[in-house]
C-alpha cells in the first residue's frame, strides 16, 4: 500500500468506523458517541475548546495548505 493510497482511503475508513459504531450503539441502545462526547464536553468545556481548536487547525492546515506549483 502506498502512502497516497493510505491517505486517500484513511479518511473514508475513519468515517466508516465512526458511522458503524454509531449505528451499533443505536441498535444496542447504548450511548452513542455524540451523546458521550456531549457529556464529556459539558464536564470539560475548556479541554473541549482546546481539542476542537487543535483538530480544527490541523484539518485546516491539511486541506487549505499553501499551494506551491
Amino acid at each position: 500500500m502506498t502512502g497516497l493510497l493510505a491517505v486517500a482511503v484513511g479518511g473514508p475508513v475513519l468515517i466508516l468506523a465512526v458511522a458503524c459504531f454509531d449505528v451499533a450503539c443505536l441498535l444496542l441502545k447504548k450511548p452513542t458517541p455524540g451523546q458521550v462526547i456531549q457529556w464529556w464536553a459539558r464536564d470539560h468545556p475548556f479541554l473541549t475548546a482546546l481539542l476542537a481548536g487543535f483538530v480544527g487547525a490541523f484539518t485546516a492546515h491539511i486541506f487549505w495548505h499553501l499551494q506551491t506549483p
Binding site: 479518511g11 475508513v13 466508516l16
Partner: peptide, 12 residues
C-alpha cells in the same frame, strides 16, 4: 449515521 455509513462505504 445511516447516510454517513453508506457514503463512507462507497467512498472507501
Amino acid at each position: 449515521p445511516m447516510v454517513i455509513l453508506l457514503f463512507a462505504a462507497l467512498m472507501t
